[in-house]
Design a protein around this nucleic acid. Structure first.
Lengths: 329, 329
DNA sequence: CTCTCCCTTGAACACGTGTGCAAATTTGCA
DNA sequence: TGCAAATTTGCACACGTGTTCAAGGGAGAG
């Protein structure tokens, strides 16, 4: 049988004071005399006392937890985002309750409901789309909802969007400047809003310029999908440019183009990606891509936590073209 | 002002039953008549009732939380591990409280104390080393402690170790078979136990065989470190083999060897890594490496959660040589 | 010295849930 | 129908904390 955790009653008894004094000692800005404070701290130290956050949260009817919903956490983009977010939360005194949706297609509603049960202060949705009923529930119960790269048809939720349209436009302009005559757009079959936006904005610019485009989409957002795209698309020898809506697919595409389809990059084929994941700068790729600052994105999420409830703030994360060496100059 | 969450009292009132009935309806195996159950469920549905896990945990003096401590979550190895672990926890009805140590060198004690405050059921340490005082505290308070790839000098903690020694030995044997005469060992400057073990085991086999070795160590466990190692080591043209204790460094090393130092791999130089991260199988690398099954590792962690408290189980995660194309046949 | 004001202290309540116990009700059997 | 057994129900307590409220006590001003 294990002994239970030390409670504030134990500490109070040992320090010879009331339980209130103990509580006040550990509460910022409460009124305790230095003498009592010292005795309490010493007793707490000796007994190994730890505040019970569950009881604390029960009282305040809210915890310091922030629920984070995501999927495919091992993909570089997600991993980087989660890494920075979890650091930022901790630094702000918030704890991260991580719910992994396992599959980008799976319904995230049950996960969000779980977060509700923990009376989390806020919910951050990194992937998947929360149903409207849940958005309502968040608002009704005073839980901040922050959605990343999903455009909800609502005006009472914080939304953080990378500027996909500007990014895709930058990519299109760059490929035009490289003199491409026929370009491919590579996207996954998952049809996430982000990918759709990038795909559409790029296509719009290209068709307006009269450039031939061919849109390819299939499979999940992975390296293998990019590889497959290269193998299927590049039998058409007229294609001399490609916009892959995600770096991870761009890297697969590059490998397929060079190794399987015998293309020289950038001489025969210009390739441009999106996200600027760490691997994009590896020497074997040196992928020209559109970067969205992870720092800015993370800061936007953290800032959103402080926003007034029910007030919608749409934050656009700016993008920039990172010139490396997969597009002809 | 926001309305508070719905409580079991509200539900009981609406359903016209006692609060106990509500509680029992949501408790597995409690005794409720079908009639009452139906009324309660309907009322709960209409009001949007959610059990308050904080109050629940307060009562049971333990929550369903599992604290996970890690660092460098965006490195492929860590990301993959966290991804699988968080899925596995969720599937078992446990929630993942993620604490990011931000820096591999930073002290993880404060993070573990935070986990204590949440009365987590178990603590999983992915990186960093918990001080002995905390190990004691875990045991005293009935909190399961699971440490991955850290050898603690204790017999009352669950420890999960990839079989570094067997892996490093496999790597050494393979390089010997490739006919290498002088091999480099590339390791980071962080000196984690895992890396030290791999380094030592490899060196032991090689020196026993009379092969020349040179050990290089510097910087963090990153791609850039591998790149740097190649630039510094390969001015010595006698080196014809390299064991990088981590795939991420092996990939950097490969890029440096090929692009900066003009080596052909595997003709001039054989390279072997460790971990089998997803990037190792990318077409540009096709890195020969030692794999440790992420599935087995994850399963071991989940299994450890069910072990008796205070009983130590040391699980060895088996390794295997994955032949690709960076070692001469 | 007395009065007032401010700081500190302890008692009591609230937070929302699970559960032991005894009463109430239903079921099973003869 | 009558009785015992089994099931269901409600009351009350416990979990560990924050906080309000009134009482206590000390210091400073007149």
């Amino acid at each position: 049988m294990v002994k239970a955790f030390v409670t504030s009653v134990d500490v109070a008894q040992r320090a010879g004071v009331s339980r209130s004094a103990v509580s006040r000692t550990f509460t910022e800005g409460a009124s305790v005399s230095p003498e009592v404070r010292r005795k309490v701290l010493q007793a707490a130290q000796e007994l190994g006392y730890r505040v019970n956050r569950l009881a604390q949260g029960l009282n305040n009817s809210s915890s310091n937890l922030v629920g984070v919903v995501g999927a495919n956490l091992s993909l570089p983009f997600m991993a980087k985002q989660l890494d920075m977010l979890s650091i930022g939360l901790l630094r702000r005194g918030l704890q991260c309750l991580l719910l992994n949706a396992a599959d980008a297609r799976s319904d995230i509603a049950p996960l969000i409901e779980l977060i509700f049960e923990f009376r989390a202060r806020a919910i951050v949705v990194l992937s998947g789309e929360p149903p409207m009923s849940i958005v309502d529930e968040c608002l009704a119960n005073g839980v901040k909802l922050i959605v990343i790269n999903r455009q909800l048809a609502r005006s009472d939720t914080d939304i953080i969007l990378s500027d996909d349209i500007a990014g895709a436009t930058l990519a299109a302009e760059r490929l035009k400047a490289a003199g491409c005559r026929k370009v491919a757009v590579v996207t996954s079959g998952s049809g996430t809003p982000t990918q759709l936006r990038r795909c559409k904005a790029f296509s719009d610019v290209m068709t307006a310029a009269g450039t031939d485009i061919v849109v390819w989409h299939d499979g999940p957002t992975t390296y293998e999908t990019g590889l497959k795209a290269a193998r299927e698309l590049l039998s058409d020898r007229q294609i001399d440019g490609a916009f892959c809506v995600t770096d991870i697919m761009a890297i697969g595409f590059l490998d397929g183009a060079r190794n399987d389809m015998g293309r020289r990059v950038p001489e025969d084929l210009s390739v441009i990606g999106f996200d600027d994941i760490p691997q994009a700068s590896w020497r074997s790729y040196e992928l020209t891509t559109i970067s969205q600052s992870f720092e800015v994105l993370t800061e936007a999420v953290l800032a959103a936590l402080d926003h007034e409830l029910g007030q919608s703030v749409i934050t656009n994360v700016p993008v920039a073209l990172i010139e490396r060496s997969t597009v002809r100059r």
